[in-house]
Design a protein around this nucleic acid. Structure first.
Lengths: 228, 228
DNA sequence: ATATTGAATATTGTATCCAATATGCAATAT
DNA sequence: ATATTGCATATTGGATACAATATTCAATAT
């Protein structure tokens, strides 16, 4: 019954609210580097852009704040968060703890279909010439792979940590020749997963993250200490 | 100038907003187990309790949702989140990754004063007879120690993960003899930190978390597989 | 000229109100 | 009796209105 209707079914109950949409848009703007650290965010301005009142904007800002992407000060407003050198390094320490572990789970558990999605993401990352898309494709590849681990909480932590440094990574990918190395490393990690070699995938992921940190340190002219 | 006034200075700009206060109260109610998983949260009811409109309540709920403590469904409302067995285990996997690492940093970096605070917390945990306070004191001890690591992002992740399972831990501490073991293990971890023995502190912390998981599994009559 | 004060403006936090949706129940049809 | 529909009520999402605080800047005092 209703066979034809069911084909066009969408879960209308799960459509995004205004505040969800605004959250996504602000998050994108921040992690892409379009909105810079320290930049102030006026509720009224955002509300005008999306043709809504300040209420959904405020809810979006609350969520961004609890993920650390913006800082709110009572009666003063919100600004895009910045990262100190120590905080920057700490984000990488967290990635280094979680991502190799998760990729090991993924290598062991990932389904054939999920692997194919990851491979598609990897190839898109390797062939895309529009540098504006590299950052997003980079994240997509990692997420596609990590999805196979079946560890939603780990993934949430990784995603929120990655958000904090994404603008730096994007700049480094575009402004240096970081893409060459990243493409090669992605391919190797993917292949290890395809072979079900969790140890190798984990080791490569660890190396990939360390390389990313070192490249960024060099790019930013910062001779900070090595990752633990 | 103003010497006497400065003695009574408080940073009024940092006083909590209504939504902050409501967030804290709801969080306490949830992690204490006072509000049970699946229980619905009516905005209007909470608003009445705090004598405010629904607006600050909604902002508190947004923050609770982004930390996973409640689930919101559009036009239906919020309920206290539950944890599947797999999710429960995953929280422990995360603790097992982060806490031994953090306690190692703490053993190496913690200041004399911070150690004394941790010791005070440890002793309070050991001597408190009011079982209703055990859960909070348990968290306080761990946090006091971890503060010494100077890793605010790690700490935030640990705290949010711990929030998700705190109601179970409190029940287990009160309804079994878990306190005996916990008190002994806390003391040993603290002593390792006092000696600056990071490896030992990390190993003990790992054991402490595994013990906690196993006790809880037994307590809940769940023969789930061991932690990785 | 510099510092201080006070008013005007801007911005945020919250209350109140309205619209959209969900829920429960009575009325009706089968 | 059961299923379906329509209505009344409850609840949430968001708009508007207002109060609290911050910021800016002119006016005044030193």
């Amino acid at each position: 019954m209703y066979d034809d209707l069911k084909k066009r079914a969408v879960d209308l109950a799960k459509t995004a609210s205004s505040s969800d949409i605004i959250f996504d848009a602000l998050r994108d703007a921040i992690i892409s580097g379009n909105m810079k650290a320290g930049e102030s965010i006026r509720q009224e301005n955002i509300a005008k852009i999306f043709n809504v009142s300040r209420i959904p904007v405020r809810e979006a800002l609350k969520k961004l704040e609890s993920q650390g992407l913006v800082k709110n000060e009572r009666y003063k407003g919100a600004i895009v968060s910045s990262l100190s050198d120590a905080e920057f390094k700490e984000i990488y320490e967290i990635r280094l703890l979680l991502e190799p572990t998760v990729v090991r789970y993924a290598a062991q558990n990932i389904s054939k279909e999920a692997l194919e999605i990851a491979r598609a993401c990897c190839e898109e990352f390797s062939t895309e010439t529009d540098s504006a898309k590299w950052g997003e494709l980079n994240r997509k590849f990692h997420e596609a792979l990590y999805m196979g681990a079946n560890r939603p909480f780990h993934l949430k932590i990784i995603n929120e940590a990655s958000d904090r440094i994404d603008s730096y990574i994007r700049a480094q990918l575009v402004l240096t020749d970081g893409m060459t190395k990243a493409r090669k490393e992605h391919m190797e990690i993917l292949e290890a997963c395809e072979k079900g070699d969790g140890d190798r995938a984990a080791a490569l992921t660890r190396q990939h993250i360390e390389d990313s940190y070192n490249s960024l340190m060099e790019f930013m002219g910062n001779n900070s200490s090595k990752l633990a």
